Computed example of a mutant assay.
Amino acid sequence: MEIIEVTSKPPYDSTPLTLVIGKFDGVHLGHQAVLQTAKEMKGEGEALAVLGFSDHPLWILKKDPEYQSKLTPDQEKMRILTRFGVDRYYRVEFTEEYARITANEFVLEHLSRLNVKRIVVGEGFHFGKGGDGSVTELVNLCSKIKSSVTVVPEIKEHGRKISSTRIRSLVKNGKMEAVQGLLGRPYTITGEVIHGEALGRTLGFPTINLGGTESYIEPKPGVYLGTAEIHHEKEGNEIWNVLISAGYRPTVNGQGYLVEAYLIDYSGDLYGKTASVSFLRYMRGEIKFTGLDALIAQMELDKKEAKELLEIIN
């Protein structure tokens, strides 16, 4: 997938496009419905493109810390969009200046620089300064640049709108089965396997520590059942069942939030590899134990419970 950085206006391009517009944080089932519609509508010889933002508008404009982290940071989002057949991603650097662009300017001065044959958006789409531009206005403005507009109805779950805000809250509360139901896949954090303090190895539970995960929304501290996909450059990726510890490691006076995973029945060296850890089920909260012996005993219980759950799930 080609990634085009947009710092003001997109570069002129004659490539015929079917264009999807949105923040796409999470690429949840609602987003996927829009992407699938666009994919099915794409004409022969057209590229499927997405126009999205570098950062959430509420972080840039309001400095709301809730929106500094993401369900799907760029690296994760690109992987998912590629699987949906997206050919091109316009990554707009969202700034306070960009936020002042009116609906008129967005279509007639920005989108007009591209050869957009059709635009596909979700039912609740708004655009332009203050989000004042409605879907109706988008249709009217796009007629002037000879682009059609398709509006995809909202996808609901048990009568409730599927939204990134709702999913964010579920992640922070450890409700991973509900998260998976709205994303259509488990919540996943991808990072590089880095060296830690090797305490897990000393305790008989060697773990992989994920680095470079600061831009992800942090799951509720605790122990989770999950899977880890180990990415290899040449040979195929491998997937392992894991116990995930996410949090602050109070028993050993941990410094900062950390995601580490114990690969059940695995032995080997994965340092420097990229790993994607998926959260399937919250098992228990983070506990400050009286000592390492108590911690080891609980980890043995966690491993036993994990294997029992895996027999049920699989």
Score class of each variant (00 low, 15 high):
Glu308Lys: 09
Ser215Tyr: 03
Thr251Phe: 03
Tyr90Asp: 05
Glu40Gly: 06
Leu35Trp: 01
Phe205Met: 11
Met1Asp: 14
Leu295Cys: 09
Gln68Glu: 15
Thr213Trp: 14
Cys142Pro: 12
Glu137Met: 15
Val50Asp: 12
Phe205Glu: 05
Gln75Ala: 14
Ser276Ala: 14
Asp302Met: 08
Gly130Pro: 08
His126Met: 15
Leu203Gln: 01
Glu305Ala: 11
Phe279Gln: 00
Pro219Trp: 02
Glu5Asp: 10
Glu96Val: 13
Ser148Phe: 04
Arg185Leu: 11
Thr188Gly: 00
Arg118Ile: 13
Thr274Pro: 07
Val151Gly: 09
Ala261Arg: 00
Leu35Asn: 01
Ile217Gln: 12
Leu210Trp: 01
Leu81Ile: 04
Gly285His: 06
Lys9Arg: 14
Val116Gly: 00
Pro10Asn: 02
Gly226His: 07
Ile155Asp: 15
Arg91His: 15
Thr150Lys: 06
Cys142Val: 04
Met283Phe: 09
Gln180Asp: 11
Glu93Gln: 12
Lys161Asn: 07
Ser163Thr: 14
Lys303Glu: 13
Ser14Gly: 13
Glu260Ser: 14
Glu105Arg: 10
Ala38Ile: 01
Lys220Asn: 07
Glu192Gln: 15
Gln298Arg: 14
Lys220Ile: 07
Lys234Leu: 08
Lys9His: 08
Glu238Leu: 08
Phe279Gly: 00
Asn140Glu: 15
Tyr67Trp: 06
Phe94Leu: 03
Glu105Met: 06
Ala261Gln: 06
Asp302His: 08
Val149Tyr: 03
Pro186Tyr: 02
Val223Tyr: 00
Glu233Phe: 01
Val86Cys: 05
Ser169Asp: 10
Leu199Tyr: 07
Ala297Glu: 15
Ile244Asn: 07
Gly43Ala: 03
Lys144His: 10
Leu19Pro: 00
Glu308Cys: 06
Asn209Leu: 06
Lys39Met: 11
Leu17Pro: 05
Tyr266Thr: 12
Glu123Asn: 15
Ser134Asn: 04
Pro73Val: 12
Arg185Asn: 07
Pro73Tyr: 13
Tyr224Gly: 01
Asp25Cys: 02
Arg118Met: 14
Gly45Pro: 02
Leu258Glu: 07
His231Ser: 10
Ile3Gly: 11
Tyr216Glu: 03
Gly174Glu: 09
Trp240His: 15
Leu81Lys: 00
Ser14Ile: 10
Gly128Trp: 01
Met176Trp: 01
His126Val: 15
His56Tyr: 02
Val242Asn: 00
Gln255Glu: 15
Gln36Tyr: 03
Thr274Ala: 14
Leu35Ile: 08
Gly174Gln: 08
Glu93Ile: 07
Gly200Asn: 10
Gln36His: 08
Arg79Thr: 09
Ser8Thr: 11
Lys172Leu: 11
Leu61His: 03
Lys9Phe: 08
Phe289Ser: 02
Arg113Lys: 12
Val135Cys: 12
Phe289Pro: 01
Ile239Ser: 11
Leu141Arg: 02
Asn140Phe: 14
Gly131Asp: 06
Tyr257Asn: 04
Val107Trp: 00
Pro221His: 04
Ile167Cys: 04
Ile244Asp: 09
Glu260Tyr: 07
Arg168Tyr: 02
Glu2Pro: 05
Cys142Ser: 13
Ile217Cys: 12
Gly130Glu: 15
Pro10Arg: 02
Tyr187Arg: 04
Gly131Asn: 05
Leu225Tyr: 05
Arg79Ser: 10
Asp64Gln: 07
Arg166Gly: 13
Met176Asp: 04
Thr251Met: 02
Val151Arg: 05
Asp74Gly: 09
His31Ala: 08
Ser112Pro: 01
Glu66Leu: 09
Thr95Tyr: 01
Lys146Asn: 09
Cys142Asn: 09
